[in-house]
Simulated scan of single mutants.
Amino acid sequence: MNEITVEIQKLVNGGQGLGLYQGKPVFAWNTLPGETAAVKVAKEKKNYLEGIAVGISNTAPERIDPKEEHYLSCGPWQIMRFAYENYWKRKIAKETFKKIGGLELPEAVLVVGQDLFGYRNKIEYGFYTDKSSNKLQFAFHRRGSAELSPIDTCLLAKGNINKAAINILDRLNKAKVGAANLKSLILRSNRDGQVLVSLLVTNKNFKMEPDVIINDILIGFHIYYSNSP
């Protein structure tokens, strides 16, 4: 099974659209309720299918163009209007509490954020070496794949997180460090905008002087060796 046609009925946790194909649930990224989608199947299980829409025949009025090319890797909600996103997040939260705990939540307790971008206080970037320039770049895994997709930074992260990330990336490039020696870069920000960084490496002998990069944004820098996949 490669590509199927699915009518999307609703959204579920995480931002996937849900429809049916021959009576089997299909969870499809890049879809909205009311749309008929050509879905490329990425995962086929006994009780459900999962995939990504590669074509939409009747576009929902709530659909908008995402701000980032890599939106499926970080924020699949970018394809819809903000008010519509919040409507579905409230609806999903109410359904989840009722299904799992038997609780009927009043609207008053369902609080949503007001920021479309720059709100995440934690992010993890992978690494990718550009073959033409031989320079290190950040990367996310493509949705439904182990393949890495090079990116600049992610708009969902707080501004100081990305400033700190670029600082680290520049220094890694100046030191001519290749992606093979690195696993990921994890950045966390506090309420004051200060950032703590963890660099996961695959080379036990890797060194980078933390005192060189600490500044008013970066308040902590740690290197960890990791041999996990």
Results as ranks from 00 to 15, higher is better:
203 N>P: 00
228 S>R: 12
191 R>K: 15
175 A>Y: 07
176 K>E: 06
136 L>S: 14
22 Q>A: 03
181 N>P: 00
184 S>W: 04
64 I>Q: 15
143 R>Q: 01
13 N>P: 02
80 M>G: 12
56 I>A: 08
117 F>C: 04
74 C>P: 00
125 Y>Q: 10
44 E>D: 13
208 M>G: 06
228 S>W: 04
17 G>A: 13
146 A>E: 03
200 L>Q: 12
203 N>L: 05
196 L>K: 12
195 V>L: 10
129 T>Y: 02
225 Y>P: 03
212 V>N: 13
56 I>Y: 06
28 A>T: 00
90 R>Q: 14
119 Y>N: 07
64 I>W: 09
44 E>V: 03
65 D>V: 13
94 K>G: 05
178 G>D: 12
206 F>K: 14
38 A>G: 09
96 T>F: 04
18 L>F: 14
215 N>M: 02
19 G>N: 04
8 I>G: 03
31 T>N: 05
54 V>S: 12
199 L>D: 12
213 I>N: 09
19 G>A: 02
203 N>Y: 04
47 N>K: 13
196 L>H: 09
131 K>D: 14
85 E>Y: 02
164 A>K: 12
30 N>D: 04
61 P>C: 11
75 G>V: 05
84 Y>T: 15
187 L>H: 12
141 H>Y: 02
119 Y>Q: 08
69 E>C: 01
10 K>I: 01
70 H>G: 02
84 Y>N: 10
153 T>G: 05
201 V>W: 10
10 K>F: 02
46 K>V: 10
193 G>D: 13
78 Q>D: 13
79 I>H: 02
193 G>W: 13
14 G>D: 01
127 F>I: 11
88 W>T: 07
117 F>M: 12
117 F>Q: 12
203 N>Q: 12
124 E>K: 14
70 H>F: 10
167 N>W: 06
116 L>C: 03
212 V>G: 05
63 R>V: 10
134 N>G: 04
31 T>M: 05
218 L>Y: 06
169 L>R: 05
215 N>E: 03
161 I>Q: 10
55 G>R: 14
22 Q>V: 03
128 Y>N: 01
201 V>T: 15
179 A>W: 09
170 D>M: 07
216 D>L: 07
163 K>Y: 09
122 K>W: 01
169 L>K: 02
141 H>V: 00
227 N>C: 04
34 G>E: 12
93 A>H: 05
99 K>P: 00
67 K>H: 11
68 E>A: 08
111 V>G: 01
171 R>M: 07
136 L>F: 11
203 N>E: 14
185 L>Y: 09
5 T>G: 01
170 D>R: 13
15 G>R: 11
26 V>M: 03
40 K>M: 00
153 T>C: 06
221 F>N: 11
28 A>G: 01
156 L>V: 15
68 E>H: 05
164 A>E: 13
105 L>M: 09
201 V>R: 08
104 E>W: 05
83 A>V: 08
8 I>N: 03
67 K>N: 08
55 G>F: 08
131 K>Y: 08
22 Q>T: 03
183 K>V: 07
201 V>K: 09
113 G>T: 13
